[in-house]
Amino acid sequence: MTTDVLTERAAAAPAAPAAPEPPTRRRRGRLLWLTWRQSRITLWAIAGLLVLASATLLWLHFSLQQMVDDLDRAGCHDSDSWSTINCWSLIDPIDRRSVVYTQWLQPAAAAVPLLLGMFVGAPLLAQEYERGTVRLAWTQSVSPLRWLGARIALPGLVALAAAGVLAVLMTWVWWVDIAHGPVAFDPPFQSFTYPVLGVVPVAWSLFALALGLLVGQLLRRTVAAILVTGVLVAAAHGLVRWTRPFFYPTVKEVVPLNGWQPHNAWLVDRGPVLADGRWVSTDSCRGHWERCASTTHSWIEYHPADHFVPIQLVETGLLVALTAAALALVFHRARRDGHALRATRRA
């Protein structure tokens, strides 16, 4: 052997391996280092955005509280007094702050699940497969399933926790300052309001993350996985929005011809009630106006405001089930091993 070969070391230090430490606890803790090292940029980004969003929401809340106090002190208690110049000058900034919430923060928060799926879920496994590093990880002394669990768990749980904190703050500000504020009208079922309130945003984040993982594992191409995940999450959101009225039984009522659904309720459908008492759709009157001319009442089908929680729970259950299915598939495919080398050149 030549001198630059590492022989002398082995001779000088006969390896005296200490009794191996209990493997399970040790390895689990150690996988945490790897997954932290790999996802630390993502985690810092999530933390930074969460701090930014939380600060904005807190600022919004406390400045609105201050303004509402000023409004009360000025004697502008109800909308009758608001026509005075004095009250109007106090209302205007409240209005502008509320618009920040409804026009900017709500759409941004509604996009959070999509962004988490695209930029946290999709690249996570796609990149490992694309670079072949999954074979590096799987040929260490830990089992692929344990590696996968750790690899997913840290960024996944942190993203979910962040989504949860954001949902709590968004719901709180909406409830205290918007729904019960003096000016803003923002019914809970409105398009950008519903998906950022309550438990549904967390469920969507969970689902988008799992879907991103699965798509990344299937496609093994980071860019493609990001795009496909984005399309799929958006499509799923559209589908759920379309079927959402059927998540819970609606309330059907007959109201006078120009009557409306109760405050904050979600009108699903309405139509005229014919003279013989039949409920028909508005479309059926088209071209047969004489048939509908004599109606004095309308029927309405709606979800009252208190259906908000049951509908959210049904939607959450659905999404959690889909998440479980996607994760089961991811783990099943990882256990089946045999696809790590397939995408690569064989010689």
Binding site: G132, T133, R135, L136, T344, R345
Partner: peptide, 9 residues
């Protein structure tokens, strides 16, 4: 095991 394409992070 050392794979042909030497995957590393």
């Amino acid at each position: 095991y050392v794979a042909q394409d030497k995957p590393l992070y």
